[in-house]
């Protein structure tokens, strides 16, 4: 490679590395804001601020959904499956994918009692795709095992 081209190559590498470095540092400084939600462990341990609009996420605990008889109020427990869990209160229509064992992200505020009052509940989809028939077969196999 000719010297003046080599110089340009080095310049471009320098440009890429320095802009990459600058952006990496910025992103690291902003990590708190880039994470879309606080995990159950962060909610329980008090890392998440109280009475401030935040997002909280986790898995909906099995058999923890209680719906009101008269209106759209719903209460459920969100867990990280590692011992940290908290309760979310929400009034409104839940997304199609909302169900027990499903990941959710809720927007709202944490009160002093450690309960989360949600204004919006989003269902998080995972990376697994399956035809319904396959899921039925898997469910059946589970049922057979439990018998």
């Amino acid at each position: 490679m000719k010297p003046h081209r080599r110089r340009k190559l080095y310049f471009l590498l320098f440009l890429l590395l320095s802009s990459g470095g600058a952006i990496a540092l910025t992103l690291m400084a902003l990590t708190e804001n880039i994470n879309l939600f606080y995990s159950p462990a962060e909610i329980v341990s008090g890392v998440a601020p109280v009475n401030k609009r935040i997002r909280a996420g986790g898995m909906v605990l099995e058999d923890s959904i209680f719906r009101s008889e008269s209106d759209l109020e719903v209460r459920f427990i969100v867990t990280d499956l590692q011992g940290s869990e908290f309760t979310i209160f929400y009034t409104g229509i839940l997304p199609d994918l909302f169900r027990e064992g499903q990941g959710v992200v809720a927007r709202g505020a944490l009160n002093e009692d450690g309960d989360f009052l949600a204004e919006e509940v989003l269902a998080k989809h995972d990376e697994n795709y399956m035809p319904p028939e396959v899921m039925d077969v898997i469910d059946q196999a589970h049922g057979d095992l439990q018998k």
Binding site: T31, I34, N35, L122, K124, E127, N128, M130
Partner: peptide, 18 residues
């Protein structure tokens, strides 16, 4: 980061989750 968008269903090392 924690994102709402799911991780990739495909990778070079593992069989696709689909």
């Amino acid at each position: 980061w924690f994102t709402l968008h799911q991780p990739s269903s495909f990778s070079l090392t593992e069989s696709p989750s689909m």
